[in-house]
């Protein structure tokens, strides 16, 4: 168990480091912060001053090493725009992003999984087909289209909900819906096929043959087996939630991390972008780790057993 966790932690660390390195290199190769931030009409000596201060003329490997060194000491760098610590800027935005992502994840789990399982148990019926069609629509329509559609219906036509901003809880409704619909579709479809597969397994027939009632077969024999593949996909969906947050916060002018990322990338605000990417990588790594641990808990075959025979 300890070996398992250490090896996973090591791999997690490696993943985070690769993301950081990749982001560092790509950001520095793809545009000059001095140009973007200062604009074209600034005198040459001001630009040079700026470049010196941020060490932009150093060879990239030296910049990288000093970046790593600072990171080791918990220094995530300063924003080039207002020279406040990048980490503070990012931290300020996290609650707003969580206000969207957590309800969206809850909606996805609460609707996607039951819909898929229900469809599987009613396989071939009209109810099943309706769930499939709704799910396909849910995950094939891109979230920016879905967002605009919802705005068109609920904000523009019905005037029932605000179309942007973050001043009340009503403002969160459309962004949360936009973020969750695709995931509900994915989860419904995936849970359906996982459940159908499990319901066809020999041990389900055994359970029925021994007299277990249908509802107990589903609850006690099928669901615990279907949970294993479903947990995997939920792990993946945490990643797509973050991607969704970037788009949705932009559409709905929601003051979260996603919008900060877009603004900072446009401005080549290197420290802020790196800080956000690091955080995203960390979230992904943690969710994968959680999935791995859940696996072992759900499926005894995947446990590193040392139990005596």
């Amino acid at each position: 168990m300890i070996r398992f966790v250490t090896s996973r932690l090591f791999r997690a660390g490696l993943t985070v480091l690769s993301v950081m390195t990749f982001a560092f290199v790509v950001l520095r190769m793809s545009g000059d912060p001095a140009q973007v931030l200062l604009g074209p009409d600034v005198p040459q000596n001001v630009v040079q001053d700026f470049r010196d201060r941020w060490g932009l003329d150093d060879p990239i490997w030296r910049q990288y090493l000093s970046y790593l060194q600072a990171m080791m000491q918990g220094d995530f760098g300063l924003s080039m725009r207002d020279r406040s610590p990048a980490i503070d800027l990012v931290m300020q935005r996290i609650p707003a992003t969580l206000q969207l992502t957590i309800p969206a994840l809850i909606l996805q789990l609460a609707f996607g999984i039951p819909a898929g399982i229900y469809a599987a148990l009613k396989q071939g019926t009209l109810a099943d087909r309706s769930v499939i069609v709704a799910a396909i629509v849910g995950f094939t329509v891109p979230s920016f289209v879905m967002g605009l559609l919802l705005v068109l219906i609920f904000a523009v036509t019905l005037g029932a909900l605000p179309s942007g901003g973050a001043s009340s809880w009503q403002h969160a409704i459309l962004p949360v819906l936009t973020m969750s619909i695709g995931g509900i579709g994915v989860l419904a479809r995936f849970s359906r096929s996982a459940m159908i597969e499990v319901m066809g397994a020999p041990y389900i027939r055994t359970a029925s043959a021994k007299g277990v009632s249908w509802s107990d077969v589903v609850r006690n024999h099928a669901l615990p087996n279907a949970a294993v593949p479903i947990v995997t996909i939920v792990g993946f969906m945490v990643g797509s939630l973050i991607a969704g947050a970037i788009i949705v916060e932009t559409i709905f002018s929601w003051p979260g991390m996603g919008r900060l990322l877009i603004v900072s990338v446009t401005n080549r605000d290197l420290a802020v972008v790196q800080c956000i990417l690091l955080l995203v990588a960390a979230v992904m790594v943690v969710s994968n780790l959680t999935v791995d641990l859940l696996y072992g808990w759900l499926d005894p075959r995947l446990r590193q057993t040392t139990s005596a025979h």
Binding site: A201, P202, Y203, R205, T206, A207, N220, H221, P224, N225, V228, L298, D299, P300, R301
Partner: peptide
């Protein structure tokens, strides 16, 4: 082997 439930 597949007729018994693997997670119980």
């Amino acid at each position: 082997s597949s007729a018994l439930n693997p997670v119980i």
